[in-house]
Amino acid sequence: MVESSNPQQPGLHEKYEHLIARAQQAPSAKTIIVHPCDETSLRGAIEAAEAELIVPMLVGPAHKITAVAAAHGLDISSLEIVDVPHSDAAAAKAVELIREAKGELLMKGSLHTDELMRAVTASATGLRTERRISHVFVMDVPTYSETLFVTDAAINIAPDLDAKRDIVQNAIDLFTQVGLGTPRVAILSAVETVTSKIPSTIDAAALCKMAERGQITGGLLEGPLAFDNAIDPEAARIKGISSPVAGRAQILVVPNLEAGNMLAKNLTFMVRADAAGIVLGARVPIILTSRADSVRTRLASCAVAVLLADARRHIPSVVSV
């Protein structure tokens, strides 16, 4: 075992603590909790409210929500419940409430992600913008000095170049709007040279050129980069890669969902990283949590979304990310 990966060691995961502390300085965000009908999702909403991050509105079958609360000793007496018959109806109603400006954030409860996203992406009644919807893992990796974004590991299975442009821009906008500065963005592939035999290297080179021409803004891009020379300065030096990004990346853009999902889970299980999740590109940020998430990870997911919502309050014309 890597000694520094022990989550009980003092000083680890401080990146999340800083995000949560900053979010607690912003006004709490009215958050629509979609179908919180198990202990994990209901407790997560209550914990985030107790941390003064969100003001929850619970949307789902009222009898199920109150039964879960009673079974686990959760006090929901102060929370508003919008009663609907089932999870499909909860997703539809939650989206409707967002369209009516009744909430600033969406938070997934105990329904499937696909079920929620169907309502979000519905052409006539959903929450689409001109941007491609994408997912970002905001990772607190004990063995890495930077807060690490991994995208897209949950929504876009095999994105083409245009989709990757939006995926990159969504992640950059999130990074900057939550107050982390100008990000160093590594476009990942298996190698650091451009070759027609590996199409993702061509996409990486094209994305970097798009950034040079102003089609992607707000970040420093480099690619293609293999994972080692994206996050390890010595690996980048050995390969002769000289750039502000190589060895010091803060956003890792993966070639496809499979690569991203495996990368995020490797970091989670091998070095005890925490992985907060947020969906961007809709009218409001969408908080995705997992039943396996720790309290700290659930709060970090909320904190990132709250910071983004607060930035959008101050820049009302900002493109939804």
Rank of each mutant, 00 (worst) to 15 (best):
C37P: 02
A23T: 01
E17D: 15
T31N: 05
Q25D: 12
A26K: 15
T31V: 06
R22H: 06
R22M: 06
A26S: 13
V34E: 03
A26G: 01
T31E: 04
R22P: 02
A26E: 04
D38T: 00
K30P: 14
L19P: 05
L42R: 00
P36I: 12
A26M: 14
Q25T: 07
T31Q: 07
Y16V: 03
R43A: 08
L12S: 14
C37T: 08
R43V: 01
K30R: 13
R43C: 03
E17S: 12
A23N: 05
S41D: 10
R22T: 07
R22D: 06
P27L: 07
R22I: 01
A29K: 04
R43I: 04
C37V: 10
P36N: 06
A29H: 05
K30Y: 01
L42I: 08
I33R: 05
P27N: 07
R43L: 11
D38E: 10
S41R: 08
P36F: 02
V34S: 05
E17W: 09
E17L: 13
A29Y: 01
E14M: 12
I32A: 00
I33L: 08
A21D: 03
K15H: 01
R43M: 03
E17P: 02
A26Y: 06
Y16N: 10
E17K: 12
P27H: 04
T40N: 14
I20V: 11
T40C: 11
D38W: 03
H18P: 06
A23Y: 02
P36E: 02
H18N: 09
